[in-house]
Each structure stands twice: as structure tokens, then as C-alpha cells.
């Protein structure tokens, strides 16, 4: 279990993480979501005692990270793919980490095989692809067979087969009763992996909810309707008190969108007015879109907030992926 209590990190005037309070529980995959620059990596570094919090604290198994004896056997972390000296072989990289925590030498070979790097253990990582580097990072996280796993963007640079492998690995680790905390800026990826979500934007907690709850609350649903006689359809909808807006996005040309599920009302209205319909269906917005909407609102709120009290909440966040 990981507990964050009022965790805050400020760099000068910029607040990277603002009073983050939440609990990451064992036995499930907890997705940590937010746009790039939202403070995910900073939070993870503070959990590991690498960055000092400005205020608040982070506890693992009830203790600050620095108080753990042989921390690698309690917490395994993939922080960045290249936390590796390029001139030290994969085997020796893992060996020096293992030795410092009293992990037996044979475990090094085991984790190398586990992540599919058994063949290149004697090679120097400077020739590794991004995906291989990521696998080596995952191997170091698994080294101490820890109860808690922290992965920062684990699928970055992996090919589809690798992504599939990471997804299964995360699910398996959680099924074994471990605490699995994994960050991503890709909602679509999390939708396939996580049971629980913690969403942050500009360092602030936006949502701490189950995946199902998140979908329920945030994925907007709408009814799309299109007719060759668009003007008459619009009149009919207006007179029936159904608010419609022109649809946007690819393949939307000329279609109209209505909030919620209105297929029955629109179908009956069209029959009554003898209107030809080419499309009538109920859509649920993608989770990706819901997530983007949630974080975008937060960004805008923050920007206004910052302008008002002149604290300068920081630049607008970039969005990738």
C-alpha cells in the first residue's frame, strides 16, 4: 500500500504537485493518469524518496521510503528507461543493484529471462533499443520480488507485442496481491489495464475512482442523427424541444448530435414527420475523450486561477499521444 498525504512539490513559483492525498491499494492495478507535465513523475520520485516534498508525505507500507531496509525487496520501480550506465552490461547493472539489497546473484539471471533479455545479459545497454531499455528497467523493478511496483510510462517505446506483454505482466502482478501503480498519459492504454484510476492535472487530484465509476461519470453519451433533409430535421427537433448541435469530427458531415440517449424520441419524431433518416445511433464518447475533457477543464481552471491571484500556476500543459 502507498499512502500520499497532502503531498506537495514546488519549484520556485511553479507548483508541480499540489496537496495530493490518496491511497494506492494492493491487489489491483491503479492507473495514474494525467497529461505530460501533470506531476506524475514528480509524485513517483517523491514516493521513492528521490525528490524531497515541499510539504506532506508519502508512505510505503506505512513507512517513509528511506526507512525501508533493503527497499528493493519492498518496492520495485521503473522510473525512466535509461537509468542505466550504457557501458555496464545488463547483467552487471542488475548485479550491483541486487548486491546492495542482499538479493542473490541467481535472481539476476531469472529476471533477465523473465523480461526476455536472457540472450543479451552480457551486452552493454548502449546498443539497446528503447524497448530493450524499457525491459531492462522492468527487470530491475522485479529484481527484489517486491510487494509494491511503480511503473512510470512502462509501455513507452515498446512494440505491440511488448505492450501486450506489459499489460499481462501488470495484471498478473496485481492478481498475485501486489500493489501496482502505473502512470500513463494514454487513457486508452489504461482502459485495458487498470482497475482503479487516479487522475491528476497540473499536480492536483481530479479523480480517484474505479475504472467503471470513471466511465459512468465522465464518458459523455450522445445520439447522432443524420438526414438528407437536414433543415426539416432541425426544425422538427427544435419544435419537439430536443436540443441538437452540429456534429463535429471525421465522418460527421451534416449530422446532428443530441445529449444522452435520444434514439427512441428521434425515431418516433422522424416517423411522425415522414423524414428520411440515414443514421440514428447512440454513442458513448471514448474514454480518451472523457479523460481529455476532464484534464482540459482543470488546465483552464488553473490558468484562470493563476491569472487572478498572480501566482502564475505555470504554463499550459502540452499534450502528446
Amino acid at each position: 500500500m502507498i499512502e500520499l498525504a497532502g503531498l506537495t512539490k514546488r519549484y520556485g513559483l511553479k507548483t508541480a504537485v499540489r496537496e495530493l492525498t490518496c491511497v494506492i491499494r494492493p491487489g489491483q492495478v491503479t492507473g495514474f493518469l494525467g497529461p505530460n507535465g501533470a506531476g506524475k513523475s514528480t509524485t513517483m520520485r517523491m514516493i521513492l524518496g528521490l525528490d524531497h516534498p515541499t510539504a506532506g508525505r508519502a508512505l510505503v507500507e506505512g513507512r517513509p521510503y528511506a526507512r525501508l531496509t533493503d527497499p528493493l525487496t519492498v518496492v520495485g520501480a521503473l522510473l525512466e528507461a535509461r537509468a542505466v550506465h550504457p557501458g555496464r552490461t545488463a547483467f552487471h547493472h542488475l548485479l550491483c543493484l541486487a548486491q546492495s539489497n542482499g538479493i542473490p546473484r541467481r535472481r539476476v539471471g531469472q529476471v533477465l529471462d523473465l523480461v526476455g533479455l536472457g540472450e543479451v545479459g552480457a551486452k552493454r545497454p548502449k546498443g539497446f533499443s528503447l524497448g530493450m531499455g524499457q525491459r531492462l528497467g522492468i527487470a530491475s523493478a522485479l529484481l527484489g520480488d517486491p510487494r509494491i511496483l511503480i511503473f512510470d510510462e512502462p509501455v513507452n517505446g515498446l512494440d505491440p507485442e511488448g505492450i501486450h506483454w506489459v499489460r499481462n505482466l501488470l495484471r498478473r502482478l496485481a492478481a498475485e496481491g501486489r500493489t501496482v501503480f502505473v502512470s500513463s498519459h494514454l487513457m486508452s492504454e489504461m482502459a485495458l489495464t487498470a482497475d482503479h484510476l487516479i487522475v491528476i492535472g497540473q499536480g492536483q487530484l481530479l479523480a480517484d475512482t474505479s475504472m467503471a465509476g470513471f466511465i459512468e461519470e465522465n464518458a459523455r453519451s450522445y445520439t447522432r442523427v443524420s438526414s438528407p433533409d437536414r433543415e426539416r430535421l432541425l426544425d422538427a427537433l427544435n419544435s419537439a424541444g430536443l436540443a441538437a448541435t452540429p456534429a463535429s469530427g471525421p465522418g460527421a458531415d451534416g449530422a446532428l448530435d443530441l445529449e444522452g440517449d435520444q434514439t427512441v424520441a428521434v425515431g418516433e419524431l422522424a416517423a411522425e414527420r415522414r423524414l428520411v433518416l440515414h443514421e440514428l445511433c447512440h454513442h458513448r464518447a471514448s474514454l480518451e475523450e472523457a479523460f481529455m475533457r476532464l484534464t482540459r477543464q482543470a488546465v483552464e481552471y488553473q490558468a484562470r486561477d493563476g491569472a487572478e491571484d498572480r501566482r502564475g500556476a505555470g504554463s499550459r500543459q502540452g499534450w502528446e499521444g
Binding site: 520520485r45 521513492l48 524518496g49 528521490l50 521510503y65 528511506a66 522510473l79 537509468a83 543493484l97 546492495s100
Partner: peptide, 11 residues
């Protein structure tokens, strides 16, 4: 970036 792996192992 090895320092992060090192400090995670020996905090």
C-alpha cells in the same frame, strides 16, 4: 540517470 536506481536501492 543511474543515480536514481542507486538511490532507490540505497536511499
Amino acid at each position: 540517470g543511474m543515480i536514481r536506481a542507486s538511490l532507490a536501492a540505497v536511499p
